[in-house]
Amino acid sequence: MQRVNMIMAESPGLITICLLGYLLSAECTVFLDHENANKILNRPKRYNSGKLEEFVQGNLERECMEEKCSFEEAREVFENTERTTEFWKQYVDGDQCESNPCLNGGSCKDDINSYECWCPFGFEGKNCELDVTCNIKNGRCEQFCKNSADNKVVCSCTEGYRLAENQKSCEPAVPFPCGRVSVSQTSKLTRAETVFPDVDYVNSTEAETILDNITQSTQSFNDFTRVVGGEDAKPGQFPWQVVLNGKVDAFCGGSIVNEKWIVTAAHCVETGVKITVVAGEHNIEETEHTEQKRNVIRIIPHHNYNAAINKYNHDIALLELDEPLVLNSYVTPICIADKEYTNIFLKFGSGYVSGWGRVFHKGRSALVLQYLRVPLVDRATCLRSTKFTIYNNMFCAGFHEGGRDSCQGDSGGPHVTEVEGTSFLTGIISWGEECAMKGKYGIYTKVSRYVNWIKEKTKLT
């Protein structure tokens, strides 16, 4: 034993070699072989497995989906700052455009905790909710729209109204504003409101030439003092309507412009014939205590009207009353817009006519005020429907199939267009061939041609 100890002390290297040989010859039971080890760690190889990531292109799944990435790591994937920024906006807080917040056709661009709407022409605001041009839906104005110097929408209202708090709607500024039905039992019968379409306001006024200088022999019209197929109006439903009495009662109609003036057809009036105007009328054979009678003290036909040349060209006249009318729910003026808007309103496509005229061709006159909704007829169809001249200051309205029309005794009465609950004068009943005849239409004086003249002559002093 002493000898062994001496050998170990003198030859430590020998001992180490012996131990190493023993270990190498022993069977290893701690580690699995290569094949079995792979069965336990069965993990798919990654895209760049075996390579240094710093030297390969980034992978979106590896960089940002398996674990949260930084902007720089995302930049490695896209290799483009702009594309990385677009991805980053949604990656950080989701897609803010998912709810489609942009209105009126706006395009949404996502941002971090926010979004941006790219608005089409005519709109602005956070969600493109603000109209900035009158060309689109009248700028959301209830009545009139004008573009300011910086191309912003400025709404306005006709006389007797003021802008509401929203700067879009119009509200009454006087007790009985024009064009409004205020009798409670008839307010439910107000005709369907007309909503502004998209309009090209630059070209809204037709490029028409008034044929002022045409000389033409007097034409022989049949029954051209021209509501057939209409309905009984309720008291106060058309408070701007008046009836004219002269040699015979209810020979023509008219509309209240203001307390002192009536507008009617020029062919209705004769110099030297006494005319009485009755406002607030409903049943011409009954006294309903809503009527107001006034005498006409002055007749002003349009300066281009000449019955000797043509009885229905420039067929418009103004009547001055001896005493002002007292405005109330049964006696209310009709609204008159400017030339541009009167023309736009007419193009809405349908209007209402009213009167006490004959209820059928050569038949009896109506006792109760009649009204009828009539569609506008395109000019080409209008011209083809008659052998008589249709001037540019006239328009056609009615039904091709016949059966409904204005008729004798309705002449001078109103053709009105309702705009968001307020009625505007767009025409004056003038003439036609018979009444409600198939293929024939009622012919009306186009008020847009005469609004400046009306307003100039009827100013209240």
Rank of each mutant, 00 (worst) to 15 (best):
T426A: 00
N36L: 08
E340R: 09
I297R: 10
T264F: 00
K39N: 09
V4G: 11
T342H: 03
K109W: 04
M65E: 05
D315G: 02
E286W: 08
V154Q: 13
L20S: 03
R384Y: 06
F360N: 14
G58I: 11
Q2W: 15
H267F: 01
C178L: 01
F395Y: 03
F399R: 05
P120G: 07
G421V: 03
S423W: 15
S329G: 13
M394V: 12
H415N: 00
V257M: 03
R226C: 05
A317H: 01
C145Q: 01
I136S: 13
P175H: 09
S448E: 07
R162L: 08
R62F: 03
I284Q: 07
T417R: 02
T194K: 07
K89M: 08
T194S: 11
T290K: 05
N147K: 08
D33Q: 07
K45W: 09
N258V: 02
P235N: 05
A37K: 00
Y371H: 13
L211G: 12
F399V: 13
L346K: 03
N452F: 05
N36V: 11
C117L: 00
D95K: 08
P101Q: 02
K457M: 14
T342E: 03
V451Y: 05
L41Y: 15
E61C: 03
H415F: 13
W453S: 01
P177V: 04
Y391E: 12
T209G: 11
S220D: 13
A164E: 05
F360C: 11
N135R: 07
L41M: 11
L103K: 08
N393R: 03
N135Y: 04
K247M: 10
D111Q: 15
S107R: 13
R404I: 14
E281D: 12
C134G: 02
C407F: 12
C268T: 00
Y22K: 03
R3S: 10
E420H: 07
A366M: 09
E193L: 11
S204K: 13
T215M: 05
L460N: 08
F31A: 08
V199W: 11
R379K: 14
R180Q: 07
R3T: 07
Y341E: 05
V227P: 10
R140N: 14
A308N: 09
I336D: 01
I390S: 11
P333M: 02
A317C: 05
A397G: 09
T332D: 01
G13I: 14
A397I: 02
V277G: 01
E285W: 11
V447Y: 00
E231M: 09
G160C: 02
E434C: 13
L23G: 03
G94K: 10
C435V: 03
E73N: 15
H267V: 02
V227M: 10
L41R: 14
L383H: 15
D150P: 07
R449F: 12
E82D: 15
V199G: 11
G58L: 07
E98C: 04
A9E: 07
S148D: 09
L24F: 10
W356F: 12
G160V: 00
W356P: 04
Y450R: 02
I390D: 08
E401D: 14
N304C: 06
K362Q: 07
I297S: 07
E323A: 14
N213Q: 10
V277C: 03
G351W: 01
